[in-house]
Amino acid sequence: MTSALQPTAPAAAAEPAAAGPAARPGEPGTLRRLLRRPRFFLPLGVVVLLCAMAAVPSAFAGWFGHGDPHQCSLEHSGQGPAPGHPFGFDVQGCDLYSNVVHGARDSISIGLLTTALTLVVAVVLGSLAGYFGGVADMLISRLMDVFFGFPMLVGMIVVLETFSVHSILSVSLVLALFSWPVLTRIMRSSVLATRGLDYVTAARELGAGPVRILLRHAIPNAIMPVAVLTSINIGGVITAEASLTFLGVGLTAPAISWGVQLNSAQQYFTTHPGLLLFPALFLSLAVLSFVLLGDCLRDAFDPRLR
């Protein structure tokens, strides 16, 4: 409350803070505290469920019927929900529910893999550029500018065209190749801001080397904006995969992903809206959950907000 009192005087803040309820002994049980919050456990539940679906789709696909996405029969083509087939059938007469469940694997794998790759690149390059500045910063920043100036979609299409196999790995690599500059730029500016803070100077003054300063002080304090964007990024990547697949350069049938399903639904959705609706619903739910989870984690791991 003292900061609200004198918002313009950071130095004058919170003398009574010490006496406040904040002065509790160390903070174990961050997780337990988080689990009590619906804002956290709802998205977490959805994410866990989706990940489990991605890991063992057969365990979920068989809940209502046979659960085999490849067991199709054209006589059911485009039929609506039926007993044992809660989402109905696609144009090939395959069970839509088990297709959507199996689609989680590729979509979420690509989302996680691409984001992990992007994050590693962003943290390494962003930290180097932000902390050391000079030539390192110039090279990395110009490289980012080149990628920013490049039409991303065209780039991805061109690169993917040169691959003969469109596997999860190749699609992820291409997506990462074109999505690293955004996170890297944010990491760079975040490290740049942290680097000028007194506690980093204090560590330097103690004689800490750049590696220790980066690992112990700069990166942990600078990574939060990036981490939050990362969770949003997972959602974005899943969508991007869907777009690429839609354009015919991502995964292709017989691979099953939400993108593939949306792609095939485009021609029929006026007559069979379920084909678009159900994969899109899962896609949106996945994206939303990752975003909310990221938001919540940011708050949880900031000791100032505890």
């Binding site: 409350m1 003292t2 609200a4 009192l5 004198q6 918002p7 005087a9 004058a12 803040a13 919170a14 003398e15 009574p16």
Partner: peptide, 20 residues
């Protein structure tokens, strides 16, 4: 001293209290 309420009193007088 900071936190004693002197600025908040003034802000209340001006009708510009912070949110909450």
């Amino acid at each position: 001293e900071s936190g004693c309420g002197k600025s908040l009193t003034a802000r209340a007088v001006m009708g510009i209290l912070p949110a909450g």
